[in-house]
Nucleic acid binder design. Structure first.
Lengths: 346, 346
DNA sequence: AATATTTATGTTTTCGAGCACAATATTTAT
DNA sequence: ATAAATATTGTGCTCGAAAACATAAATATT
């Protein structure tokens, strides 16, 4: 039925040697029309799939993959990524891969450019990175492309022909999910969209989320909401938000576009105030605490761990099994409340 | 640094032949104390990991895995499982596995027992099944165990020493997640827990969900809710629920413990009634339609596809790589609304 | 026609683990 | 002391793909 044919089988069936079969399969060397015909006739009938185990046994090239990651010590958002990388390394440790992670400072473009110099010197076969800085990313990607180094991205999307793949979430829809949740909780009232520490590096991130959030309500044509956008910068986030709260006593819902929801939650929990619905991002410890206390109602989980896991494994499987790297992998937008949070955290 | 050592390397370092090293590694045959000592000294210093590729190349045993699945034509709940199995098969097609799926009628224990006869005749190396019928499952599992056939379960948990592994969700917490969602939407009022077509096969399923649901509210000690349980059976679900609605005009929330929420949603959408919050299970087409219409507020996704995928792959990796099968794999309890549903559906 | 060159095809080795079998060393029995 | 039995160790083959290498056949050059 589905017997596994080998090159030797094909050679026998076609009445040639396995060397000739190999040349046909890999389109190398010259083969006579006669032999080609005979082999193709066999290949048409049977379903040949090369044994990937045997292929990779002989292959002793060490593939080098470099991963660029914002330092989790500076922004804990990136911490789960390390586990995702480790999982991938573990799963494919039988194969010849040298996978190295390089940390850069997410606040500084210089750090990003510098680390790319280091990576270039390693002359890797593939690079995985979050394209936080738009212009700088395009620069470095161009260099990689010229050297035939595969570039995969995660976290946020940047358009470039030099990018082979993107793993992440649809940020526009992520904003819509948040909007739907608030809509369900509130039905009407004043809503604030809060961006904290908006810098160039994640401005697009936040804008997309806001666009989706507003899109949901404008599609509903619901006039019962009053939506304002608030941009706050550390170290004045708490003071300024407190002022905003005092000036807007009727505020009933908040959508925070980054993982800094805990800063807002802190102010709210310290203030006597009617219940405000709060939706934020990411299951970092501070956020989960406020989720469990009931100050934050929902967190949207961006699944960083799986982003890097899939980013790395798709590269590995490309080299090992000639598996095509998907252009885009969109991960589900996980809605998290106090009751299911633990299942998303390792 | 982390050079990969081979048996040949060890043999050279220890000054013996690779045959002897092999005997030590596999504790087979007799080896002199002298040789054992020399080899162990080498093994203490270096970190030997056998090359799994080479090992599996030679291994031409065909492992047989049988999967028992309720017929998706009878209950579409099980449809995604097929994709999960296919994914696993695809991923490991390079290896020698014969993976066969057998369908049984989820309504009938006889069908289940009969299909187990068929599976037994195949003398598989491992079996994956959802233990829907408690007593019957224990019976068949005992037989498998006596024949040294590995038994993995998914969907719902049954206690037995003969079961190697369970993949699924924590149903108690699943009920709590639903409760938390309703609590957030309602704050107070009358809530109905509805079990549809409760039969022995999934009675425990439903009971666990109800237990978690009620546990959440009793923990909160909130007296503002009035929770009643309603058991409905087809073909009278719609009529009986309609009656219930008329008798309870103040009903404000419903939790349906199975994938049949669409039956309830249908009645609600056909009735002039104030908004009732509805939470159900599973992203089957009918449910998602009512989710998009706003009749159902949330669906809890039980991720059947991933359940079977993980159930199968953990068996495969056990045979291939001696990887231990995890006793329990608990999948996250995914909260789904109209905005993120599409990302969970393939 | 004889030799050089190109083109086509077949053979052999390699990768690492695993295991059968052959070879050698040691012990036991007579 | 020597044959036989047993214990220990070494060798070589297998798995399938890949590619280097070797050979054979066909064509070109003088």
């Amino acid at each position: 039925m589905n017997k596994k044919y080998t090159i030797k089988d094909i050679a026998q069936l076609a009445g040639v040697s396995k060397g000739t079969v190999d040349r046909v399969l890999h389109k190398r060397g010259k083969v006579s029309d006669d032999a080609l015909k005979k082999i193709n006739e066999v290949l048409d009938v049977i379903n040949y799939e090369p044994n990937l185990i045997a292929r990779n046994l002989k292959n002793n090239k060490v593939y080098r993959i470099c991963i660029l990651l914002p330092d989790p010590k500076i922004d804990p958002y990136w911490l789960p990524c390390i586990k995702g990388i480790e999982d991938a390394v573990q799963e494919f440790r039988a194969y010849n891969f040298a996978i190295e992670t390089f940390f850069f400072n997410p606040e500084g473009k210089k750090s990003f450019l510098k680390i790319n110099e280091t990576v270039l010197e390693k002359s890797p076969d593939a690079v995985l990175l979050p394209p936080l800085f738009h212009k700088e990313t395009l620069e470095v990607i161009k260099k990689y492309d010229e050297l035939n180094i595969i570039v995969n991205t995660f976290n946020n999307q940047v358009q470039s022909d030099s990018i082979k793949s993107f793993v992440g979430q649809d940020l526009f829809h992520s904003g819509r999910v948040a909007a739907k949740l608030l809509d369900l909780l509130l039905k009407k009232g004043q809503i604030a969209i809060i961006h904290i520490d908006e810098s160039i590096k994640n401005a697009i991130h936040m804008q997309e989320k806001e666009r989706g959030f507003r899109n949901y309500f404008s599609e509903k044509q619901n006039q019962d909401y009053n939506i304002t956008t608030l941009k706050l910068k550390n170290p004045n986030v708490e003071i300024n938000f407190n002022n905003f709260l005092n000036e807007n006593p009727d505020l009933s819902g908040i959508f925070i576009s980054t993982s800094k929801a805990y800063q807002i939650a802190k102010v709210i929990s310290e203030t006597k105030h009617k219940k405000i619905a709060v939706i934020g991002y990411d299951l970092i410890e501070n956020n989960v605490n406020y989720l469990n206390q009931g100050v934050i109602d929902f967190l949207i989980h961006q699944n960083q761990k799986r982003q890097t896991y899939l980013g790395v494994t798709s590269i590995i499987e490309f080299f090992l099994f000639d598996k095509q790297i998907p252009n885009t992998i969109l991960l589900p937008i996980d809605i998290v409340n106090s009751e299911n949070a633990s299942f998303y955290i390792e």
